[in-house]
């Protein structure tokens, strides 16, 4: 292990942040929906749709920003669709989310085929990527530079959004109303809060976050769209939010933990370990964490 020194570990940081970014963005989206009492199971499909629209919109306009905006809009729209399914059609929340995932997997493949004649990849579309950001002075400081500078623009967005979402949920009237709705819709309604409006809004904002995470996949992580490219990341985000115990900072630490697990798995693949087994790590860690949390909650309940 002597070849892993401190600087070597530090070089891991960009990789971890890169893997964490889409998970964190999506997990923040799930967090907002969950606190409003409408857990967004459609996160996987929204992410895939965001990735798809990012590529298509940026290829059509030649502007990466337009791609990002497109991804945010489609995420928000799908959030509205999910809200409509729950509140207008009165369908079950979880089943509607599953339906959204099935529809997104099928719909993106279908549209990709109609646009490019290829079902697997968007190679023929000249899509754009979002830029990396170099912070002027900090970039030149040896250790701090690696830590803070040179990351993808959405990485900064994701981490800056953490305190934003945290303050919104805990320190603003709207956030308080949102949490009240999630805690007890009946009491919130009696207190004069428009439960439907709050939940619709929460799902739209949730979708916008998840769509942004999707845009990172196809316009940062890689520069194309491929069939089913979200590959369960939406579900990892769901697990991160559950592990984060409903707080923005907790969600961030859980996302970082899962991102680190994935990044280490990717790095270890190069050392001759079976890559398939390494790929299970990001899916097994949340299960273990869930059990640990659930046990602790049980013990606290038993003591109370």
């Amino acid at each position: 292990m002597s070849d892993i020194d401190f600087v070597g570990l530090l070089s891991f940081v960009p990789a971890i942040l890169r893997v964490t970014t889409p998970i964190l963005l999506a997990a923040l989206g799930v967090l907002i929906s969950d606190r409003a009492g409408v857990l967004n199971i459609g996160v996987e499909g929204m992410m895939l749709s965001g990735a798809f629209v990012g590529v298509v919109a940026s290829a059509a306009t030649g502007s990466a920003a337009a791609g990002l905006i497109g991804a945010i809009i489609v995420g928000g729209l799908l959030g509205a669709v999910l809200a409509g399914a729950v509140h207008i059609l009165k369908a079950d929340l979880i089943l509607s989310g599953i339906a959204l995932n099935i529809a997104a997997a099928a719909g993106t493949t279908l549209l990709l085929f109609l646009m490019t004649g290829d079902k697997g990849m968007s190679g023929s579309l000249a899509s754009q990527v979002l830029p990396k950001v170099t912070i002027p002075v900090i970039a030149d400081i040896p250790l701090l530079g690696t830590l803070l500078s040179g990351h993808h623009i959405l990485t900064y967005v994701a981490f800056l959004a953490v305190p934003g979402v945290g303050i919104f949920l805990t320190r603003t009237p709207l956030g308080l109303r949102l949490r009240a709705v999630g805690e007890s819709p009946e009491s919130a309604a009696i207190a004069g809060i428009n439960v439907v409006r709050v939940q619709v809004m929460a799902l739209i904002v949730s979708g916008a976050f998840v769509g942004t995470g999707g845009a990172f996949l196809s316009m940062g992580y890689v520069s194309w769209f491929s069939q089913d490219m979200s590959a369960g990341r939406g579900f990892i985000a769901l697990a991160a939010e559950v592990m984060g115990h409903g707080s923005a900072s907790g969600t961030m630490f859980a996302s970082l933990l899962l991102g680190a697990a994935e990044a280490i798995a990717v790095a270890l693949q190069g050392r001759g370990l079976p890559s398939e087994l390494m790929q299970t790590v990001p899916y097994i860690v949340p299960v273990i964490a869930l059990v640990v949390y659930a046990r602790r909650r049980q013990r606290l309940l038993a003591r109370a």
Binding site: S96, I98, A99, L100, A103, T109, L110, K119
Partner: peptide, 22 residues
């Protein structure tokens, strides 16, 4: 026509059949 169209049908079936408003 890609056969994925069927996935869209499945999703809509799931949605409308659980819709108690309908």
């Amino acid at each position: 026509v890609p056969s994925e169209a069927v996935g869209l049908i499945q999703a809509l079936v799931l949605l409308v059949v659980t819709s108690s408003a309908i």
